[in-house]
């Protein structure tokens, strides 16, 4: 068996695969953030809190209504998306024509409110949520033990990412959306209801965060804090990919998962910082991120 820097190659494959799986969370979250930034021009700082909401809604579904994981996977994004639509209509709309720093601050405030409410209701140490029985156990791949649930996470997130990409790049609705991003006034003049499009886009982006939350619930701690630190990493992913670039967010999400996975083997302490080092390097070489267009 050959080794790479003292680590057996087979173990390294295992670590890379795990990294890719973690990357799927980054991909879905940054995709939502990128979609929202693309059209609304705001950095949705409550994205982490909405991810947390997804996990909690899944828990509530199970414990209050007896709704299982699979139904929650559909229902929770809808619930989170609906609250997103309310937030857009009631709050974000009012500040749409101001600098997007205000959007960031407003959503930051919202994140605090959401976190605070959940913390008051459910405490800070979190709630139990099990892996659905269909996905318990795993498969020995020879170089590692791959839990079925992890496999499912990759498949589900890839499917969602591709579907979103298809929706935006290949459908008529997507074309309207891109047109509205490019020039809202002109698109409005063509008789397209841009405000509605904006509302739906925010709802959709937020629903993606909710979806990631449900995916995360069985394997990560379900607690009010779970999205608080994640947001800043996801934000970095979006910037590296190029603000507003859909494909950039997806590809960067998965690749940064890989890089983080490698860091966890060779220098685990730095696994949360490596992303920022990459961000500085990328921005110094490519001013608008990997896939972004220069302003």
């Amino acid at each position: 068996m050959f080794e790479i820097l003292g680590v057996p190659a087979q173990a390294l494959f295992g670590q890379l695969l795990l990294g890719l799986i973690n990357g799927s969370f980054y991909a879905i979250l940054s995709l939502g953030l990128a979609v929202i930034f693309g059209l609304l021009n705001i950095i949705n700082f409550s994205h982490g809190a909405q991810y947390m909401m997804g996990a909690f809604v899944a828990w509530m579904c199970l414990n209050y209504l007896g709704i299982n994981y699979w139904a929650a996977l559909l229902l929770a994004p809808l619930v989170v998306g609906a609250t997103g639509i309310a937030i857009e209509r009631l709050l974000l709309k009012r500040i749409a024509h101001f600098d997007h720093l205000y959007g960031l601050l407003l959503t930051f405030g919202l994140a605090l409110i959401i976190q605070g409410v959940f913390r008051n209701q459910y405490g800070s140490s979190g709630l139990p949520y099990q892996i659905p029985p269909e996905l318990r156990g795993g498969q020995n791949l020879g170089f590692m033990f791959l839990p079925y649930y992890r496999g499912w996470v990759v498949v589900a997130s890839l499917a969602v990412c591709l579907a979103t990409w298809f929706l935006i790049e290949k459908t008529k609705l997507g074309a309207y959306l891109r047109a509205a991003t490019e020039n809202p006034t002109l698109t409005q003049a063509f008789g397209i209801n841009v405000p509605l499009l904006v509302t739906l886009t925010y709802g959709f982006g937020v629903a993606l965060a909710g979806f990631a939350g449900v995916l995360a619930a069985p394997i990560y701690s379900v607690n009010p804090n779970m999205g608080a630190d994640l947001i800043i990493v996801v934000f970095a992913v979006v910037v590296i990919g190029g603000m507003g670039s859909i494909l950039g967010a997806i590809i960067t999400g998965f690749s940064l998962g890989l890089i983080e996975g490698l860091t966890k083997v060779f220098y685990p302490e730095a696994s949360a910082t490596v992303i920022f080092i990459i961000m500085v390097l990328v921005l110094l070489v490519r001013p608008a991120g990997l896939f972004g267009r220069a302003a």
């Binding site: 009012r94 407003l106 994140a111 409110i113 008051n120």
Partner: peptide, 20 residues
Amino acid sequence: GSWVLVVQGVIFVVCVLTFR
């Protein structure tokens, strides 16, 4: 006590909405 976050958040939102 535990309402700190909520109160802080509300102040943020009100600031952004009403006196920028």
